[in-house]
Amino acid sequence: MTIKAWLETAIQDAEKRNLPGLRPLLEALARSTSALRTADWNHDATGESDSMPPDVR
């Protein structure tokens, strides 16, 4: 699920549950999740952007 789709779904659910205070927190969490997903140590199943070899770390 893309972060955009996740955020839209999460906000809709939070509003349905009458938790409007969650919106800014979810927006902040989305930014954090974006950082997590774009970190260079994430595995890529294609092998095209493998994380650094161990001896470089």
């Binding site: 938790l19 205070g21 969650l22 979810l26 999740t33 997590l36 997903r37 970190a39 994430n42 595995h43």
Partner: peptide, 30 residues
């Protein structure tokens, strides 16, 4: 409200964070 926020985290992102944990362990060990 912060605990509720955690209920929205996807399993795939939790697993990513565990991978990141291993990287940080190696870097502190180094």
């Amino acid at each position: 409200i912060r605990l509720e926020m955690g209920r929205y985290i996807l399993a795939e992102d939790y697993v990513r964070a565990l991978r990141g944990r291993q990287i940080l362990i190696e870097e502190v060990d180094a």
